[in-house]
Design a protein around this nucleic acid. Sequence first.
DNA 1: GAAAAATATTGGAGCGCTCCAAAAAGCGGT
DNA 2: ACCGCTTTTTGGAGCGCTCCAATATTTTTC
Lengths: 354, 354
Amino acid sequence: MPTLDDVGRAAGVSRGTVSNVFNRPELVRPELRERVQEAARSLGYGGPDPKGRLLKEGKFNAIGFMPPGAYAIAEMVRSPYGRELLMGAASACDAAGATLSLVNGTDETRAASIREALVDGFILGNVVDIDVIASVKRRRLPFAILESDAGPDVNSIRIDARSGAVAAVRHLTGLGHKRFVILSIRRTVGPAIVHMPGVTDRALLAGFALDHQRLQGFDEALAEAGLSIEDVPVIETTPGDPAAGAAVFDHCPEATAIMTMSDWQAITVLDEAQRRGIAIPGHVSVVGFDGTAEAARTMPPLTTVAHDIAGKARLAAEMVLENGKPRQMVMPVELVVRGSTGEPRSRLTAFRSC
Amino acid sequence: MPTLDDVGRAAGVSRGTVSNVFNRPELVRPELRERVQEAARSLGYGGPDPKGRLLKEGKFNAIGFMPPGAYAIAEMVRSPYGRELLMGAASACDAAGATLSLVNGTDETRAASIREALVDGFILGNVVDIDVIASVKRRRLPFAILESDAGPDVNSIRIDARSGAVAAVRHLTGLGHKRFVILSIRRTVGPAIVHMPGVTDRALLAGFALDHQRLQGFDEALAEAGLSIEDVPVIETTPGDPAAGAAVFDHCPEATAIMTMSDWQAITVLDEAQRRGIAIPGHVSVVGFDGTAEAARTMPPLTTVAHDIAGKARLAAEMVLENGKPRQMVMPVELVVRGSTGEPRSRLTAFRSC
DNA sequence: GAAAAATATTGGAGCGCTCCAAAAAGCGGT
DNA sequence: ACCGCTTTTTGGAGCGCTCCAATATTTTTC
């Protein structure tokens, strides 16, 4: 690959002049400019290599996006939620003329990816892994984290998940529901983990920060209706796992309302219901979480705890791009009632205790 | 920001040793290593800056993805087709440990974005703009282009769109359809452009390479059934334009079969049909193009000319990553018949000529 | 205990570029 | 032909790092 020097030599001018021809052509005499361009063309020189400029200028003009959880980029794009995050981040980058880099990596390579990413900052999408946060901090670049509060010196944006959970439960108890099951998010890849009431390891659930707020909201609103979250089974499934729906129906056939932690899970439940011929909301009501575009397109359309996902990511990107004083934001949620929830099925249906 | 030299000075060692501490720690005496790390910590040095390495090593270990058409990244992620391309490219990058950079830019800034993108190669997703191709060529980096054949010295992958179009038409004529409308892709942003039979500017249509093959396939298969594409209205709409469905129904109420150039358009038609209470396929049949995941989830599920979108992008990414001799590939398509096509509605329904 | 071998550390060169102060060239007027 | 002025061109310095041959230090061996 020829360099500025090579072109300069070929055209009989200095490196500086060649640089000017490409970057500030008005500074160089038209005739000389022409000669330099000719030399560049004949050498196959395609313009100043950005690598060189980079070192001098010090900015990549790019931000890195780290997919939610431990997912690969491909999985993120597949997930309705991840996709909207991506859109939001992309639109902020668009507006700022910056590039969005999708930072990839397996559990082993992630730290290296972060260390080497050619970016001026990071957005961490719903990251749970503390090591990832540590790796990013080590880069001393601005970053923003989604759905985790990492203290006052870190940009973070999260939704008011507690209120969302409360609204969801109130909606359902208001309709008369008493038998619930919670479909929660498994942090690792694997089959569904079922926590039935009274089983001790349920205590572990509270350890997950993201779920914590939602569970707390569920708890609070169930108590209002004279119920207890202690009596509600919790099933953890990996997002996108097509077996999530089956797990719910197999383990909790008597539930009349399924509360999920994401629309994606809720959609899986809807799919499984259709396969089994289970009527929604006739037989069981389903509530999603996030308010993705997909949720409005399901059959029936999904009742969900919605928020502005893309807006959240856009804001995060802006925080990173601005590189100002760290802020912590909480975004509002709104229960969007659609067709997937209704009154509980008739009490005539026999059921055994769940 | 401290540098290797700063840390070395603080620890009383040379730059080279500090570099070793971070890159090949086994080379340096544990005690010294500890001292250097301590110095780094107290200076707030977060490890070698990738900018420096870059210049030396010469590789970004990243490829740039240029969205289809003239769309911004956010739009690409929204489109079912774009999203699957992205997934495919991402999975190839994942496997190669490379980063995927989403190269953004408006029409004015695109050239600059390409010139400055910190990548080792490009994937051009269904790009139509000849300037974009020229800009990329100027970088002298490997690249692959989707759905355009840019000659033997350029990597390209396209689908056998002609066969797909033929299969779609045969399927419909086989069901007895005689009155078609083609929903084509408008290359710019704006309202639907309607080309009715006999109107002269229809000739322009053939100018679009992408559409050309499909139109040719339509033509061919219509001829087999004793019909002529000259009698079929063509409506061009911007992908994602929610008014596409309305344009079709408003301008061609008597068509019994709608052939689209993308699933996204077909989905829009389905949505509009539902709004208007038009039965699909009872009143009109709809065929999509691409075979996106969404097409299987619509009501009714969409009959579509499917291909492996993600696989196409993955292949393109691999070509770029490999940087071998340019190849041109044609991928097979397959007509997937689902619920959106059926026999034409009864001839009893009155209709005026379209 | 000295030489040889193995191991650790150093610092110059250079990656391709931009910036900038200084030098050179051009120009109009005497 | 020379001066002062403006416009154009030059080439050194330096961005932060890695590589590597050379040098310094430690360990082993006889």
